[in-house]
């Protein structure tokens, strides 16, 4: 953001990546506690903006859906509004766009154009032009992607050996097609349930794509935070860039240390003064069913306990316990 502020007199940013600060010339779902990583991408956010201007723009809802599916977002919650608009506008029926394009195939075609560095063609396809040209890119993309994926799958034992002791699997291999690194990392992360970080060399330096899985994110992994300093992005998908290959070892060391801290078990001690702690505890014991590594007791007007696990899980459980205490106290006050 600082670079943008310096570079432009007048600007406005529409984005969906989480950030530590936003500013007045920014529209980002995260500013309003909407999960932009999972339920509202940039195209969808912009669609909701233009929809305010004119209801006839409802027919553009398909572009928000394309952006959402391109970012592997489910079409629910905030994205659900776009899905409904597309159906209401009569442009989407049985997953078919405008009566002739299958929605997912359309997204794959745009994606293939982007990955094959045919960005203008990707734009044309989005504008419902040159679709057949786009399909040729999709065919090429699928063939090359599968070849690279087969190669990396065959090499996986070696990759794991090279990354022994690390939280993430770091792959730096010149045989991988550079532009497919992000997609390959997505498939490998899902297959092996590990954070996968692929580094490729391009004309400007080292491009890095990292991908995790929903389960890993639940356990505390946040790749965007791990890449801070030379990149950023979402918890589940992030990118970084190094100007020189000499920086790779340091990058891996720092990022993996951060990932380690994100998943290393922690213990949180609770000591909360509560009126009628014993009665509150009875309510808590009902809600605690299913929690492991949680010990909570009532002692002399306090609720005390410990929660142990990965930071993400501990945070969620601790939040739940505190919410239960508040709700039990409020309920008793009401009585």
């Amino acid at each position: 953001m600082n670079d943008i502020k310096k570079g432009f007199h007048r600007y406005f940013v529409v984005d969906h990546h989480p950030s530590r600060e936003y500013g007045s010339n920014v529209l980002n779902p995260w500013m309003y506690n909407i999960d932009g990583t999972r339920y509202l991408c940039t195209a969808a956010t912009l669609y909701l903006v233009v929809k305010q201007l004119d209801e006839t723009f409802q027919k553009l809802s398909y572009l928000g859906l394309v952006g959402a599916l391109g970012d592997k977002q489910p079409l629910e919650k905030e994205n659900g509004e776009l899905l409904q608009d597309a159906v209401d506008a009569g442009i989407l029926e049985d997953n078919t766009l405008f009566g002739k394009y299958n929605l997912q195939q359309f997204v794959d075609t745009v994606n293939a154009c982007c990955r094959n560095s045919k960005k203008e063609l990707a734009m044309e396809v989005c504008l419902l032009r040159k679709y057949h040209e786009g399909e040729k890119e999709l065919q090429e993309y699928r063939e090359t992607f599968q070849r690279d994926l087969d190669y990396l799958t065959r090499m996986w034992d070696t990759v794991e050996k090279e990354n022994r002791g690390r939280i993430g699997c770091y792959i730096y291999d010149t045989r991988i097609t550079k532009k497919y690194a992000g997609e390959l990392a997505t498939v490998l992360a899902r297959t092996y349930e590990k954070p996968v970080i692929i580094l490729v060399k391009d004309a400007e330096g080292i491009k890095i794509s990292g991908r995790a899985t929903p389960t890993l994110v639940k356990g505390g992994i946040h790749l965007g935070k791990a890449f801070q300093g030379c990149g950023g992005g979402h918890d589940i998908a992030a990118g970084a860039f190094l100007e020189s290959g000499d920086m790779i070892e340091t990058f891996i060391q720092i990022v993996d240390q951060r990932l380690h801290y994100m998943v290393a078990p922690v213990t949180v001690r609770l000591d909360i003064p509560v009126k009628n702690a014993l009665q509150v505890m009875k309510a808590l014991s009902i809600d605690n069913i299913g929690y492991k590594n949680v010990k909570v007791t009532a002692e002399h007007g306090h609720i005390k306990g410990t929660v142990t696990g990965t930071p993400g899980t501990v945070k969620n459980i601790t939040d739940d316990i505190i919410a239960c205490i508040i709700s039990a106290v409020q309920m008793m006050e009401g009585e």
């Binding site: 195209a43 572009l63 928000g64 994606n111 982007c114």
Partner: peptide, 20 residues
């Protein structure tokens, strides 16, 4: 230049006729 970015660009181009 990813799917979301290009889709957003196409949306802006259609709604505002702007250069992308």
């Amino acid at each position: 230049g990813d799917v979301d970015g290009v889709a957003a660009g196409a949306l802006a181009h259609t709604a505002f006729d702007c250069e992308v």
